[in-house]
Write a protein that binds this DNA or RNA. Structure first.
Lengths: 143, 143
DNA sequence: TTACTTGCAAACGTTTTGCACGATT
DNA sequence: AATCGTGCAAAACGTTTGCAAGTAA
């Protein structure tokens, strides 16, 4: 998601636009792979030297609340964030370098309908995530 | 997964069968919703009073390594475990009470093939998880 | 000016590690 | 008997909270 839009949304929701928040928003918006709070912190200090890790946590929390970023679940944890896509999208992650691709069109309606009937659940949300190896990493295999 | 089978697998892999491990295996195998290490610990002490939380962590680690249990990813974290299913299965979770249903037959081959072609990724794994409200909770809505 | 935001320090909960003792094979 | 497993205590880690000072509106 565009960083301008993120800042607008923050403002719309009554949050002030500070240098710290601008820095965090810009970093997440400009990065195509998921970043942990500490990674955001390290990058943010380049443009915003005195910034504290606490502020990163608090800003990420607000951005997640507003749906501007989303938590990325990976094999070994789910503490990393990535900018949100538009509408209903899913993620494809490279397990080697962490690069991501978004995709939509999962067409799970029939499956979900069938599972809902069999289980009696009302299904409200679904997660679909793919893992693999991107083109670049296929050439230079580390693992 | 059956607790007998879990114990057999542990033994096959060179791990000793202690009371602590038996207790952890039995608890996880007998529970249909995801349990955190502390929850396992609290239940394990009923049959195994002196047991330490550390042992629970170490046992869960081994069970996960061997694929006998799996980590469950939920909205607010992924520190809970559930016994593994047989073959390729996915989870449906009740966001109200935590009960789970397994399902297979996701038929994502066509989708995955298409995304693989478009992205250039070699796709190795996929996660599909559904969230909703189970039959019981639909009646007694807490939220 | 006023309310929101910040950084610091400390608290907190979870997970990991070192070690001597105890148990399984 | 030898090795592996255990519990305890302490450390390490990530995250959250209280607070006084600073800043955006």
């Amino acid at each position: 998601m565009d960083s301008e839009l993120c800042l607008t949304r923050l403002k719309e929701n009554g949050y002030r636009l500070t240098d710290a928040r601008k820095a965090v928003v810009e970093i997440v918006a400009a990065t195509t792979h998921a970043l942990t709070p500490v990674e955001v912190y390290d990058r943010a200090r380049m443009s915003c030297p005195g910034m504290g890790l606490v502020t990163v946590y608090r800003t990420l929390e607000k951005l997640e609340e507003l749906g501007l970023i989303q938590r990325v679940h990976q094999m070994h944890g789910c503490q990393a964030f990535i900018t949100s896509g538009n509408g209903h999208e899913h993620l494809l992650l490279c397990t080697n370098c962490g690069s991501t691709v978004r995709f939509s069109g999962d067409q799970l309606d029939r499956l979900i309908g069938s599972i809902s009937r069999h289980s009696g659940f009302i299904i409200k949300e679904h997660w679909l995530q793919l893992f693999g190896m991107c083109k670049k990493c296929q050439g230079s295999v580390k693992k």
